[in-house]
Simulated scan of single mutants.
Amino acid sequence: MTSPPGRTPSGTEVPAVTLISALQSLSRAQREAAARIAHDLDWPRSGVAVLHLLAKCGPTSLTDLAAHLRVDLSVASRQVSTLADAGYVVRTVDAEDRRVRTVELTDAGRALAAEAAEQYTNLIDRAFATWSPEDLAEATRTLHRLVDTISADTAHRRSPQNQQESA
C-alpha cells in the first residue's frame, strides 16, 4: 500500500512528521544545554532539574515532583535520594497524610538552584539575544500549544475509559 504524496502510510500529514523531528532536535539541544550547565555545576543533569522545580514550586510531594518532571515515581525517588545524600533536599512526612513524603530544598539546595538559574539566564541571554520580544512570545505560544496537543493525546490514551475500551 502506498500513501498519497504528503502523507505517511498512516495518513498523517508530512509537515506534522517534520514537526516531530524538529521537536526531537529541540529536545536534544535542550538536554545538551542542561548537561553543560550541570557539568559546570559539577552535578548530574537530572538533579539540577529537581532543584529547579523545587525552587519554583516550593515543598512538593514526591508524587507531584515525578508528575511535574514527567518521570516514573521510582526515577524521581532516586534523584531525590541523591540530592538528599548530598544535603540539597530533605524529605519529610506529611503531618496530615503520613503516607505522603514531601521534598524541600535545604539552604545548600537553594544556593545550588540559584546558581543553576543564573547559568540558565546567561545561556538564554546569549542564545536569544537576536530574537525580538514578539518572536519570543510567538515561539512560547506555539510551544505551549504543542505541549498541550501532545499531552492531550497521551492523557487520552492513558485514560481508564480508553484502557477498558481496548481490553
Rank of each mutant, 00 (worst) to 15 (best):
M1R: 10
T2W: 07
S3L: 02
S3N: 13
P5S: 10
R7G: 01
T12L: 14
E13K: 11
V14M: 15
P15A: 09
P15C: 14
A16Y: 13
T18K: 08
L19N: 06
I20E: 13
L23A: 07
L26W: 06
A29Y: 07
Q30N: 08
R31L: 07
A33I: 05
A34M: 00
A34S: 09
R36H: 12
A38F: 00
H39W: 09
H39G: 14
H39Y: 06
H39R: 11
D40G: 15
L41M: 05
W43S: 10
P44I: 02
P44Q: 05
P44N: 00
R45V: 08
S46H: 10
G47Y: 00
A49M: 05
V50R: 01
L51H: 00
L51Y: 03
H52N: 03
H52R: 11
L53V: 08
L53M: 05
L54F: 03
L54Y: 00
A55K: 06
K56C: 00
K56S: 04
C57E: 12
G58N: 11
P59M: 04
P59D: 03
T60H: 02
L62M: 05
L65G: 04
A67Y: 04
A67Q: 15
H68A: 11
L69H: 01
R70E: 15
V71D: 05
V71H: 06
V71G: 09
L73C: 06
V75I: 07
A76L: 01
A76Y: 02
R78H: 12
R78I: 00
T82Q: 07
L83Y: 03
D85S: 07
A86G: 06
A86N: 05
G87D: 13
Y88I: 01
V90W: 09
R91P: 06
V93T: 13
V93R: 13
D94Y: 06
D94C: 13
E96R: 14
E96Q: 11
E96D: 10
D97Q: 14
D97A: 06
R99C: 02
V100F: 10
T102F: 13
T102M: 15
E104G: 09
L105A: 04
T106E: 12
D107I: 04
A108E: 15
A108W: 08
G109I: 01
A111F: 01
A111M: 03
L112R: 11
A113D: 07
A114F: 08
A117N: 01
A117M: 01
E118P: 02
Q119S: 10
Y120V: 07
T121V: 06
N122T: 10
L123K: 02
L123P: 04
I124R: 08
D125L: 12
R126A: 09
R126Q: 11
F128S: 06
F128W: 07
F128L: 13
S132C: 12
P133H: 03
P133D: 14
R141F: 02
T142W: 01
H144W: 05
R145N: 08
L146Q: 12
D148H: 13
D148E: 12
D148Q: 14
T149Q: 07
T149Y: 04
A152S: 15
D153Q: 12
D153W: 11
R157W: 10
R158N: 11
R158I: 04
P160G: 05
N162D: 13
Q164H: 08
Q164V: 11
A167D: 14
A167C: 08
